[in-house]
């Protein structure tokens, strides 16, 4: 991963514990920016980022419109906004929900794939709908790395299963294995892809 690398993570209701575990496994010196979609209620406030900060060595905060994307920081999509990756910064949008979700995982993943191509690592965690499947497929199609939480280790397996079917991910990993995998990729170990 080069300087423009970015990790994008999607989790739905029931995926909060998975996000906590994943963030807990990322060391303080983790070199990439991390953007997270956690499906949530429209009226939610900053408490979610406070909660996640309690599990993370990296600084966690809600992304603002046009905020510069900085390495080693965790950006959470604010409630009731889609979060998109632009050239060097984030953008927000209040377009209609996708899969009944705003923020939606597909929106973040597709914009990241479009903006940063092969420098994207997409991770789909536990969830009970199909959001993230299209987005992860876009990440993979644009040359990025697609990772899905092993459905057997997910509180809700529908979202991982949909992502596996749609994106044919590079890695299907147990929850505890995802953070170490991200660290290894940052150290230059890229998964070998067959037939592409």
């Amino acid at each position: 991963m080069s300087q423009t690398g970015i990790v994008v993570i999607g989790a739905s209701l029931g995926g909060l514990r998975a996000v906590e575990t994943l963030l807990g496994g990322l060391p303080a010196g983790f070199p990439l920016p991390v953007a997270i979609i956690q499906h949530r209620e429209a009226g939610s406030d900053d408490r979610l980022s406070d909660l996640l900060q309690g599990h993370a060595a990296l600084p966690v905060g809600e992304a603002e419109d046009k905020e510069a994307i900085a390495p080693g920081r965790v950006y959470l999509a604010p409630a009731d906004y889609h979060l998109l990756v632009e050239n060097g910064h984030f953008a927000l949008s209040t377009e209609p929900p996708v899969w009944f979700a705003r923020p939606a995982i597909d929106v973040l993943f597709e914009s990241a794939a479009e903006a940063r191509g092969a420098q994207v690592i997409g991770v789909v965690l536990s969830g009970s709908n199909e959001d993230g499947a299209r987005g992860l497929a876009a990440v993979r199609r644009c040359g990025g790395i697609a990772v899905v939480q092993d459905p057997a280790t997910a509180e809700s397996s529908a979202m991982p299963n949909a992502a596996i079917a749609a994106a044919k991910p590079d890695e299907i990993l147990p929850l505890e294995g995802i953070a170490p995998f991200l660290v290894r990729v940052c150290e230059g170990v890229r998964p070998v892809r067959e037939g592409t």
Binding site: H82, L84, E86, E95, E114
Partner: peptide, 9 residues
Amino acid sequence: YALASLRRR
């Protein structure tokens, strides 16, 4: 206009 969301629309 901001490109990413414009492209979607």
